[in-house]
């Protein structure tokens, strides 16, 4: 294939990757930004989103689109509820100590993953796309649904931006992020904000998963990859920064698609992971917001 079309395809794939990644990483970033904790179980909320999407879609036998759009609402709500409960039951009791939280969320990772294995089973199961439309370009074909995912992610992003910057809810969250003690002094119920933010972060991951699951299948081990990628994006973009996350997700998504044109994808992943680790070492303040405690 000639280079031009090759690049076009890599770009389309990169945009798709970036779209899903932005939503997932945004959830992680939001949680870190406001609560100052790293949620290692984030990838499992993504996986749960996909699994519940399968569950909902398989209950609505009529048209795939019905099942899909119901799942797009129901699945994030269930995932959010689970996240909310685990925040109340576990993270709150740890008093959001950063290191204990990492250990606890690793535990949650296994609990969620293995419970899914017990109930949903070890198979990869497909969810039908709401519509199936193949766009034939002169050099190759591309799925219309993939483009829909990109658009849907952009819509979601705008919505998140609106909530964060134009609503009272966003103001409260920003205030908590900026200075926990002062916010509390002004009567902001910090704990409720934390629980809400944790649930919202998980819901963003779940939405990303519902969007992608008609392209990839729902599988109990699907959470690890998005987790590592989200870490990379969040570190590169600067935690808690919406714009940074979007830019970094675009960068990682596109470069992943384009670099693997020239190098082996394993090598590409190796190099990008190494670079990000070095960024974190040599520019920790800049990338971790104010300062990691």
């Amino acid at each position: 294939m000639a280079f031009g079309p090759f690049l076009l395809l890599a770009t389309l794939e990169g945009l798709l990757q970036a779209a899903v990644l932005t939503l997932t990483a945004l959830g992680l970033s939001l949680v870190f930004g406001v609560m100052r904790v790293v949620n290692v179980a984030h990838g499992e909320f993504y996986m749960l989103g996909a699994v519940f999407a399968w569950w909902v879609a398989s209950m609505f036998g009529m048209h795939p689109a019905v099942g899909f759009f119901v799942a797009l609402i129901v699945s994030p709500i269930i995932v959010g509820a689970i996240a909310f409960a685990s925040e109340r039951l576990i993270l709150k009791r740890l008093n959001y100590d950063p290191e204990s939280t990492i250990v606890a969320t690793i535990g949650m990772l296994y609990i969620i993953q293995q419970t899914t294995l017990l109930t949903y089973g070890p198979d990869a199961r497909p969810v039908p796309a709401p519509f199936y439309y193949r766009i034939q370009l002169p050099w190759f074909g591309y799925s219309g649904y993939n483009l829909f995912v990109i658009v849907a992610a952009i819509v979601m992003l705008v919505a998140v931006w609106f909530v964060l910057s134009r609503t009272r809810l966003g103001l409260i969250m920003r205030a908590t992020q900026f200075d926990r003690e002062t916010a509390q002094a002004f009567g902001i119920p910090i704990e409720r904000v934390y629980a809400f933010v944790f649930a919202a972060g998980a819901m963003l991951a779940a939405i990303a998963a519902v969007l992608i699951v008609p392209i990839r299948q729902a599988h109990y081990l699907m959470g690890l990859d998005p987790l590592l990628l989200s870490f990379i994006v969040v570190i590169l973009g600067g935690l808690g920064s919406l714009r940074g996350t979007v830019v970094a997700a675009l960068l990682i998504g596109l470069s992943d698609g384009i670099i693997s044109v020239f190098f082996s994808p394993t090598l590409a992943k190796m190099i990008s992971t190494l670079l990000v680790a070095l960024v974190l070492v040599f520019k920790p303040e800049g990338l971790f917001g104010a300062k990691a405690r």
């Binding site: 294939m1 079309p5 090759f6 794939e13 990757q17 190759f140 392209i215 082996s264 994808p265």
Partner: peptide, 17 residues
């Protein structure tokens, strides 16, 4: 064309055909 065993998306390998 060798695809890593953990790969979840394949479209980008196909132009190499």
């Amino acid at each position: 064309i060798a695809v890593p065993p953990t790969e979840t998306s394949f479209t980008r390998y196909l132009p190499r055909i």
